[in-house]
Design a protein around this nucleic acid. Structure first.
Lengths: 228, 228, 228, 228
DNA sequence: CATGAATGAGTATTCATTCAT
DNA sequence: GATGAATGAATACTCATTCAT
């Protein structure tokens, strides 16, 4: 009988119906990426995102419920790029790798390279991962994808008698992935003084030896990737 | 071994003259630690710190210039604890280690154990490291202390022919330290499902093999520590 | 008995031309009633009305100029129902009343019963009466219709020597109508603890005595109604 | 371990400790009354309240949690005045009443008079009673006080054989109180055309007859008051 | 007629920091 | 030293209304 609470279900992100809407939404996501990259999450203002996207203030709320929401979308996009960078058979890293070591090296190089491109955003994502359950979940998803790949690779090498059978693949994958990810962070975000080539070779050497891989072992299945 | 003491000389910090003042100040730092731990940096309010410390609002500014300043102090305290935990010849970890592997294991175990105690604060420090040059500097100091020790240990092992001479000691120390630190973060902050004993043994195995150490090599000098 | 029809001629209301238009418009009014009932005026959103009606957002403005306008329409509809409930010779209240007391009782009962059905909306109308001159006018119309009828009845009873001749019929009609209306509000909106039968009998007794009516006096003309 | 929700107990109204604080708070309540009276609840802006009180914007929040809270305080104050107006043995209404009728008349007159002084605020309170559980509760308290007094008076008259014993005192008190309150609202807020003296005499006559009181009955105990 | 995207004005609230007592 | 009142800048979000398609 009384009114009190405003119980109306305020709907979430409205998915655009028209082509025009789709374009506007995309412009907003692009703009948000730019703004988050330069200002971080807290200092990023919706006004700036809207202005950068070239739309009116209110238009932002036509597509997003909150700053958190669009941030989540940007975070997911960045991760997807990082993940794809590793898989893509781009010409960037020379000839197709054949040995496990070569595959590991390529993965490490690619991870560091894409981290270089996205360092600022990666830092911002990290800083804000605990801001909300949704963001934390996105953060976890990201890790999961990377770690999963490495875990599979390590397990396969173990079955083939190439890698130390004593290691728990998931623990090892998580640890070694953390090593590369954290190294990148320290290097590119905290700006410690390192250099790409030496970083790649050191990390690769550590990976290979840590797993007990024969340096020249041929790798028949999936390559190891570089988890977060 | 020289630890470049970059303690920025905070002239603004008001040092208490009387004994009473010293106590008040200490109460504030304690309270701040509690508050930062449960609320993070941004959500922590001076009111809460003052109330928890049992002093009036304005009293906070008798001893500190800003929220950042007291946060820096808390961060440094945590760092000191982490560092001491590693060095202390506490009875906690059984007999004095003799081999490199044993020393590495003890360092890893101690790092994970103290991370368990301070996980939330470690996360908060990480998240806010980029907030100001001073905080970034504190963050770097923390790493530096840990990495420096490992670098020395690795270099020594190399000189003794125990460790892979191809590795750049600083790169390797940074990478392996990152591995342990990040593993702890993923485990204790992102709450991934791991278990202490298996974590210690896996991390130790990875360290030892990565460095190419003979598992039974006796370690004459300083033990390896676990960098951030 | 002349009911000064003060229906402000809303030229802005767009009257539908086609049959389909008429249906769409009706759906909107229905939906608006539902929404205003549950959310009140301020919290009601055009989106919700449109969605509930099953039409597109913009369609609302094909038929209505503003939220106030459609609210006025709903208010008028509720008024009409309240008024009709009182007049209708529905079978609901037993045999046709013959004495003044019986007529008063029936009117009171019917008023309370229809108030039960529309309590929430009546409250919303009341709360927003001062929002605009148009709404205030609608609110006044509602009263006027009820008070006018009672005034006529009281005057008639006075001419017939049945009611206290000292009373100003309009003042008395307004006051006694207010009594019933307000009682209903307190009961059904503020949710005070009352019970229908006792309410009807108490209100009727008060009415009858207040007017100085002989309880058994036969009533030749129109029944008293229950003003707002 | 995670932070997510900001669970801190943000305290409610801070009661001023110092004399200065007490003065500032009082200034704010006064100002709020002025502003609510002229602008209603929704259109009242904190800026205006602060400016009228002659303090800085933020000072408002030193003493109040929200606009609702200070509104509740103003509402309570107004009611207290209405309640006191009836009790006070002010010289305003001539000699001390002796009969029940005289007491009822005085109560009615005083209620209408104080309603005249506070009509606008009474309307604003009414309009916003359902805005929050707290305000609703305040609204209910107000009624309760008024109705309680009348209920007691009616019951006493019944025990003394002066009033119709068939009436349920609480129902009758609520109804007759509603009559006066609502009449005042229609007259002073909806601006129907009435006049004070005739209103007082009509309402009194209706009250007296409705209760079946002998017009000249002496009233030994407490006078009837005019509920909301 | 119907649709749904675009617009942008308007404001409550927070809290670190300063200062008068 | 301690206290607690005063300050005010800074911004996310809502939603009625307009309009292009």
């Amino acid at each position: 009988m009384t009114q009190h609470a405003t119980h109306v279900d305020r709907q979430d992100t409205k998915t655009p119906t028209t082509e025009r809407g789709r374009r506007t939404r995309a412009k907003l996501v692009d703009a948000a990426r730019t703004i988050f990259e330069s200002d971080g999450f807290i200092d990023a203002r919706i006004t700036d995102i809207a202005r950068t996207a070239g739309v009116a203030y209110g238009t932002f709320y036509t597509y997003f419920t909150s700053k958190e929401e669009i941030f989540g979308e940007v975070a997911r996009a960045v991760q997807r790029e990082m993940l794809l960078a590793d898989q893509a058979p781009v010409a960037s890293s020379g000839p197709e790798p054949t040995t496990a070591a070569e595959r590991i090296e390529r993965a490490n190089r690619r991870y560091l390279e894409s981290y270089q491109r996205n360092a600022r955003l990666m830092a911002v994502i990290e800083q804000n991962a605990l801001r909300s359950p949704e963001l934390l979940e996105i953060r976890r998803e990201i890790r999961r994808a990377f770690v999963e790949r490495s875990t599979q690779a390590i397990a396969a090498w173990q079955r083939q008698g190439l890698a130390d059978p004593e290691l728990d693949p998931r623990y090892a994958a998580s640890a070694l992935g953390s090593m590369v990810d954290r190294f990148a962070y320290v290097w590119l975000v905290l700006e410690d003084d390192f250099e790409l080539e030496r970083a790649v070779s050191t990390l690769t050497r550590l990976w290979v030896h840590a797993l007990g891989l024969q340096a020249d072992a041929t790798l028949p299945t999936r390559p190891a990737s570089t988890p977060t």
